[in-house]
Design a binder for these strands. Structure first.
Lengths: 291, 291
DNA sequence: CGCCAATTTCATTAAATCTGAAATAATCTT
DNA sequence: AAGATTATTTCAGATTTAATGAAATTGGCG
């Protein structure tokens, strides 16, 4: 089998274009004798003369054919290398991300627009679900990475803290607790109708856990939950980002500063994410670290 | 710029397929350490890890992408080399040939069928004209080579004698000369109506040249010429191959054995013909040398 | 937690490639 | 047509690049 390297073809193409070894030698940065040897090797491998005479002005029919095919071969090879390079630089590919809804709606838009400026040819696939599903999706590989809170550390997930935000009481402005001047204690919740939601599981305080587990209603969907609050059916606890800014509901601080939601960047521990995914991660992490 | 050679990609693909250096080293015929270094070089050039761990069982996302692209790059490159190789071996391409009609109809069929057996993927373009046009076509490159007689040696044509065949007198069976027992002398032509044709210019004998230039009719097209003879309008001189075998005309030998048509293989002197053309030439020359 | 096997590293050897000078071949000039 | 000139090839030595084999390291498995 023959052993022709792209550099042989590149040399040949340059010489054919220049018509002289001297000129080609300057372009290629090698001596004419090196180029002469490279051409000799190529024509020996092919078993045919490429030039009519030892002056390089005229190609044989074989030379013309090999010239065209060499151009094709080189541009295809170079294109492949370029594609690999763009991929490894995170300028190409697909990134699939799962986040919790509050992150998706409040924090992702900024991250995404900066990411797209940096990597305009990368396709971004976003989905939002609850934290458990985010973790599952990252774990089984159906997404590259995710942002969620972490109920329990998984052995095949790597996590990185992005943000801590306090829970607060969400209620109507005319609710009895709404006028409280001081941060609310857990005790205050004992006497009102508490509507639980999925995020409440993040709060580990014993007294609250009891309140939470005794509650009559638990609503998982945020929009539905807020509707219930709006109707005056009770109060709930939510982190700041989960509550729409321009709503008509109150958001009151809690006395227990340990009641926080932690958001983590999640990625698989045992296999790494794509270069484009790394660029996305950089945007996410950078965005949260700055603020 | 990066300096990745096909051998690097081939090594990577083999290792990715095998899943272990040991196995790949046997296939590639190199030691595991050589392969390890080649892989290291590749991933350094790309600036990304290709395998999850130093065991080669699992590819990173980058590795999977590079694997696919490497396959594409290698098969394209190899295909190009294969095409060049097939071309230089005369297994691909186009051969354009011009011949005189008698060769085209009598001798080419055999040559062509043997050529097509040898080079089934080469396109053959045949045309027939008179010798002067054949030579012109070869000279100006509109055909690769040709078969014709040669009125005057051209400085940019290379020729090779294929066949010498004697001229003979062509006439109706009831013509006065048809019954002659002895080979005909030029003198015998002085008393009959001689119809000239283009091939007669090959005959240099002085007496004949005079007869030929005094003739009242000159017909260039062979079919037309034979029609004239058939009608009893006169006689002509032709080489054996130019007269149809199963015609009703007589072909009588001449006394002057120097009156021969010489057929040459013609090719350009200053630029060589394509590999497929060389294969065709081989068939033509071989065919004539054998007989 | 330690063994076993695969992989990497490192120093050395081998191979391929490049250089520069001299020889050769081709074109240009007279 | 012969010498002058320029381009190309050849060759030996130098340099760069890749491959080897032994030793060190790493990762997976019991």
């Amino acid at each position: 089998m023959l052993n022709i390297k792209p550099e042989n073809l590149r040399t040949f193409v340059t010489v054919a274009d220049c018509g002289t070894l001297q000129e080609a030698s300057e372009i290629l940065g090698r001596t004419p004798s090196a180029i002469s040897m490279s051409l000799k090797q190529l024509s020996e491998q092919l078993g045919a003369e490429l030039f009519e005479t030892d002056r390089k002005a005229n190609l044989t029919p074989t030379g013309q054919f090999v010239l065209e095919e060499s151009r094709r071969a080189l541009s295809s090879f170079d294109e492949s290398l370029s594609i690999m390079q763009r991929y490894t630089q995170g300028k190409m590919g697909v990134v699939k991300v799962a986040t919790v809804p509050s992150v998706a709606s409040h924090l992702l838009p900024d991250v995404v627009s900066r990411f797209q400026k940096k990597a305009p040819n990368v396709r971004l696939e976003l989905r939002d679900t609850d934290s458990v599903m985010v973790a599952t999706a990252v774990r089984n590989g159906s997404v590259d990475c995710g942002v969620a809170s972490l109920s329990f550390a998984s052995q095949d997930l790597q996590h990185q803290l992005l943000l801590e935000e306090p829970f607060g009481l969400v209620c109507r402005p005319d609710h009895s607790l709404a006028t409280s001047k001081k941060p609310l204690t857990w005790q205050a919740l004992e006497d009102v109708t508490f509507i639980s939601n999925g995020l409440c599981e993040q709060i580990r305080d014993e007294q609250f856990v009891r309140i939470n587990s005794n509650t009559a209603i638990q609503v998982h969907n945020i929009v539905t939950l807020l509707g219930f609050i709006q109707q005056g059916m009770g109060v709930t606890l939510l982190p700041r980002l989960a509550v729409p800014d321009q709503g008509e509901l109150c958001f009151l601080p809690l006395a227990d500063k340990a009641a926080v939601r932690r958001l983590y960047f999640l990625e698989p521990k045992h296999h790494r994410i794509s270069p484009a995914g790394m660029v996305f991660k950089g945007e996410v992490v950078g965005s949260f670290i700055r603020e």
